[in-house]
Design a binder for these strands. Structure first.
Lengths: 242, 242
DNA sequence: CGCGACTTTGAAGTAAATCAATGGGCGTGG
DNA sequence: CCACGCCCATTGATTTACTTCAAAGTCGCG
């Protein structure tokens, strides 16, 4: 099912060097990383990692997309992230050598580079600048996860969806803008902690209100201000109580 | 309201050197960190950081406790973490120089060291080993946050509470063990994404079932196995569908 | 002993999940 | 090129678990 393309480590190195993820790495570093790295060709719906696995690789998505999620009862999922082209996952687990807290599966036919965990760990230790990059990356991921948490903590489905749509606002207070949903609506819903039915209903409602316009996975926000009104992203207005 | 104790940087350094957080730091490093560091004496319910602030310090809790939370409408909170004695917060924000995604407030009279952001950042850059420690720390925090997310994604309140109680299990499959709740029940509830009423009702229910026994903030788990049954912490049982 | 903060308990209302069936888009194959 | 089938989204009807509101009860502390 999952297929390792038969590339020499030189070819892999060549491929890696073109990835944004590896910009700033020296050839000798890339060379060491490339050894034991594999370029995987994965059909849609291939499970890359099971929840609880100890990772033996770092994964970088070359093409396609990988969905990270927490499995819940009754085939229900809680989507954590959609890992797109040029993005990676697994750093935190590898650093700590801990079990992976999520399941990873391709959402479509994809190409993924699997980098040997040891090689990666060694390289980090050898090169402080990569350590720093990784710290930045993991920090970003933590902050993103907190943003998601905030989104999911909104009580009403309307607020959650508004929050979600506002994330894509290109600049503060834009009136109108376009969004191309990065995945199936059911997966977006699962990221918002909603059922796909509820998500659909909210989109319909927002459409009726003239706040957005929906054409498949293409959403155009017609009234960004209205959206902001709906999402009580609470800013600092606290009276210090004595 | 918040009070900086008038300590010399030598005294601060002395204090820092006794913290677990700074074990492994050399005296010269501590010395540099101590300059511009402050030991704060904070009454209960003192806000240390507002959501959206750019942090000018790293915070280490010496005594007491700090609650990190996302403010929601109607004075409702979503608790992210309870930072206890010897723990810290702010690393990820400082590394990225980004706005703080949470509000920080003391849950009781506390002592907190505020370490100058610049000093901290410089020290990280100077010393790869500290960079590595920080990477480990932030990674742990990311994984913890994902664990919380998993807990909160459980559909029923019963499952969420079971999940929560199971976290404190000292070793896998313990039958009985004791828990001292680290905060007010309302804050625990807010961490589970539940109202305090629901949390209370679930605890009562579990008490009636003989699964736990509750005495104030002291909970003794009588039947860990039952708890596990209730929490569908889904493990890998997936048939690869063709 | 009495006050304030926190929790518990009860009753009612509601939003979202669930169940079920229809509808639309797209690729495959005839 | 059309037709079928599959996957995904939508829509409707129903149920239920949780929030909310309100009030009483506990605990610790001055």
């Amino acid at each position: 099912m999952m297929n390792a393309l038969p590339l020499s480590s030189v070819q892999i190195q060549e491929a890696l060097s073109r990835l944004a993820y590896f910009q700033g790495w020296r050839p000798d570093q890339l060379g060491r990383i490339a050894i034991g790295a594999q370029l995987l060709e994965l059909p849609k719906n291939t499970t890359l990692v099971h929840k609880g696995d100890i990772l033996s690789s770092l994964f970088v998505v070359i093409s396609g997309q990988v969905r990270l999620y927490i499995p819940l009862p009754d085939e229900v999922e809680r989507v954590v992230t959609l890992v797109g082209q040029g993005e990676s996952f697994g750093e935190a687990c590898l650093v700590l050598n801990e079990a992976c807290p999520v399941q990873a599966i391709t959402t479509r036919n994809s190409h993924v580079v699997a980098i040997n965990a040891r090689a990666y760990q060694n390289e980090l230790r050898l090169e402080p600048s990569q350590m720093e990059r990784t710290l930045n990356l993991v920090s970003k991921r933590l902050l993103n996860t907190l943003k998601d948490m905030e989104m999911c903590s909104q009580r009403s489905s309307l607020q959650r969806v508004a929050c979600f749509l506002l994330q894509y606002m290109p600049e503060p207070d834009s009136k109108t803008y376009e969004i191309l949903l990065p995945a199936r609506k059911r997966d977006i819903a699962a990221k918002l902690g909603l059922s796909q039915e509820t998500f659909s209903r909210v989109l319909t409602f927002l459409g009726q209100q003239g706040v957005i316009q929906v054409k498949g996975g293409q959403i155009s926000v017609e009234n960004g201000h209205m959206l902001s009104m709906m999402s009580p992203t609470r800013c600092p207005n606290e009276a210090e109580v004595v």
